[in-house]
Lab assay of single mutants.
Amino acid sequence: HNLTITQGKLFFHYNPKLCLSEIHKMEEVSGTKGRQERNDIALKTNGDQASCENELLKFSYIRTSFDKILLRWEPYWPPDFRDLLGFMLFYKEAPYQNVTEFDGQDACGSNSWTVVDIDPPLRSNDPKSQNHPGWLMRGLKPWTQYAIFVKTLVTFSDERRTYGAKSDIIYVQTDATNPSVPLDPISVSNSSSQIILKWKPPSDPNGNITHYLVFWERQAEDSELFELDYCLKGLKLPSRTWSPPFESEDSQKHNQSEYEDSAGECCSCPKTDSQILKELEESSFRKTFEDYLHNVVFVPRKTSSGTGAEDPRPSRKRRSLGDVGNVTVAVPTVAAFPNTSSTSVPTSPEEHRPFEKVVNKESLVISGLRHFTGYRIELQACNQDTPEERCSVAAYVSARTMPEAKADDIVGPVTHEIFENNVVHLMWQEPKEPNGLIVLYEVSYRRYGDEELHLCVSRKHFALERGCRLRGLSPGNYSVRIRATSLAGNGSWTEPTYFYVTDYLDVPSNIA
């Protein structure tokens, strides 16, 4: 807008934040220059609390790290170098490059900038070799853009010569660093050979998330399962459950009422301010606690030095998902009996873990797994792929695949051998790939016309006998059925096997 004052003059007093240069501009645009008398524009009460600059400061050096910015700028000295009290560095987070010096300023003089007072450097006698002032900004957020400017702080001049310097606002972004852990990993099994893994992005990506790394490792069953005799009275049979499938998407929606109208769909109840505040506090606490764990609990591995020492970490090797089922080394339970199943799973520490690289999504279907087997899954978020990966501390989750139908069934015939004193040795093959492992066998036998009897055969007993022995049988026709019990439950009964026990007292003698 054009402003013209045809008559009258300007009068400025007691404006401590208004620089004289701005008042002189007002004289020019209003056409009143030359009308004012000496005392109409006070030299001592206008701009006496402001830094009124008329020179431009330029930054000469900028260096960044993930949490620091090192700045240096060209030296500046007023005509009387004693008038320079120091520099004021202003900075704040700036997602967009549209910041002005006066953003967030209120009537009390406060604003949204963080201000650092910096002492002037030592003055050199040689004007050509003056030290460049600077400042190291610490405690910054990774991968965050900051708006920065600097200006001088000078003393009051009796001659009211307006001098000083100020830089333009520059924008500097800190470097990326390792992201925080992925949030809320959930693993479920939808079949006997697959596990579905879902997660949420890290709360602090500290860069642009480029991919996720998912490692999985087959877990050995508890050692007590191999040692305890679950045929003993009072000892509860062990059981394991597989990871249940995901709930429906509708039930997972946030901010939804727990109660549904019987007449149909209901609208979600909005969260109160107290609920939102509580969630923010919980989120802040979780982030602080995660940072504490990362800094205190997890110790970084030592990389190899120039002395030739090897990095103890196993090298990563990509495998196809079809090879995942046989990740671990199978060892027989008892070496003397080769027909026992290889369900003991000690994992070799030198073995390469299978892994998958996930790009542009937060889910993965891990296939080719062994049925009813526990897996430990390790999830890392990465925001750099080359020249070397920059990934987060791992988040861990466990899951067990679903049982395989008929995996616990005894394959092959049940054979028998009759000894003296009416002892019958029953023999059968253990299931080759049971659900988890076989903890015991149930032997059901009966003599024709009598009630059915049951015998429990422990895992250890089966390994020693290759089956079991029935003792003290009365003469007669017998039928026997056997079924295995694994961590997933009972298998199917075998087809009945028949044998006849004679009275050993009636056996004919070869003595003449």
Rank of each mutant, 00 (worst) to 15 (best):
G308R: 12
E465L: 13
C468H: 06
K460A: 11
Q219T: 03
R447V: 07
Q256D: 13
F372M: 10
T307N: 12
Y478H: 10
T415R: 12
P387H: 08
V411S: 11
D323I: 12
G322A: 12
P413G: 13
K271P: 08
S268Q: 12
P244E: 13
D385C: 15
F419T: 14
S367V: 09
C468R: 11
R447K: 03
E227T: 10
D323R: 13
K236S: 07
H352Y: 05
D250S: 11
S444T: 11
R316C: 07
G476E: 01
V397W: 06
A399L: 09
S479C: 05
E221G: 15
E217T: 14
E356Y: 11
V457F: 00
V324R: 03
Q380W: 08
S444R: 14
T328C: 06
R376Q: 03
C269A: 06
S492M: 09
P245C: 13
N422I: 02
V334R: 12
F215H: 11
L228S: 06
S251V: 09
P244K: 15
I482T: 01
D250L: 10
M402D: 03
N490M: 07
F246M: 08
E281T: 03
R316V: 14
K361N: 08
S367P: 09
E465W: 13
P349R: 14
V324F: 05
V480M: 08
A463S: 09
G472H: 04
A399S: 12
L237I: 14
P244R: 15
T502L: 10
L473G: 00
S243L: 12
P434N: 04
R469W: 06
V327G: 05
S392P: 13
K287T: 04
E265V: 12
N208E: 05
I418T: 12
Y445S: 05
L379C: 08
D503E: 11
S248C: 15
G308L: 09
S348T: 05
F337P: 14
G207T: 04
R447A: 04
A395W: 00
G325W: 10
V457P: 01
K432R: 12
S363T: 06
D503W: 13
V397N: 15
A381G: 03
A405E: 11
E420F: 15
Q380K: 04
V424A: 13
P403Q: 04
L464M: 10
E217P: 14
S474V: 12
E279H: 06
H294M: 03
E282Q: 05
H371V: 14
P244D: 11
Y448A: 14
T307P: 12
T272I: 01
Y478S: 01
P205W: 08
E260F: 04
G412Q: 11
R313V: 14
Y292Q: 01
S342A: 14
T288F: 04
L379T: 05
N422V: 02
A407F: 11
S458K: 04
D385R: 10
L321P: 08
F337V: 10
Q275N: 05
L426D: 08
L237R: 13
K302C: 14
K432D: 14
P475M: 07
S203F: 10
E351M: 11
S283M: 13
V345S: 12
A381M: 01
A405H: 13
E417Y: 04
Q275R: 03
T502V: 13
A405T: 08
F462C: 02
K406V: 11
Y396Q: 03
Q384M: 09
F285Y: 09
G322I: 13
K406Y: 07
G322K: 12
V397D: 01
I366S: 01
Y445R: 03
E417N: 05
F372E: 02
S262R: 09
H211I: 11
L232Y: 08
S342P: 06
F226H: 13
T288W: 06
Q256W: 07
D409W: 11
P496Y: 14
Y500C: 10
T502S: 08
H371I: 13
G467N: 01
P434R: 02
T373D: 10
R353H: 15
Q252P: 09
Y504C: 10
L487I: 09
P387R: 07
E350T: 10
C391L: 00
V414H: 04
R316W: 15
D323N: 11
K357W: 03
E310V: 04
H211W: 15
L232C: 15
G264N: 15
A395C: 11
K302D: 14
P300E: 04
K432T: 13
S315Q: 10
V443K: 02
E452G: 10
T485D: 06
N206D: 02
K302T: 02
V329M: 12
Q252V: 13
K271S: 06
A309S: 09
S305K: 11
D222E: 08
E452V: 07
A407H: 14
Y498F: 10
K432I: 13
M427I: 08
P312K: 06
F462M: 12
D222S: 08
T241W: 15
S342H: 14
E290Q: 04
I209C: 14
Y445C: 03
I377F: 07
T347M: 15
R286S: 02
G234E: 13
P244W: 14
E310P: 07
S479Q: 10
S305Y: 09
C266W: 10
S479D: 09
S268W: 09
C456L: 06
E351L: 14
I418Q: 10
A407P: 03
L228T: 05
G412H: 05
C456T: 06
S262T: 10
S398F: 05
K432H: 14
N383I: 05
D261A: 09
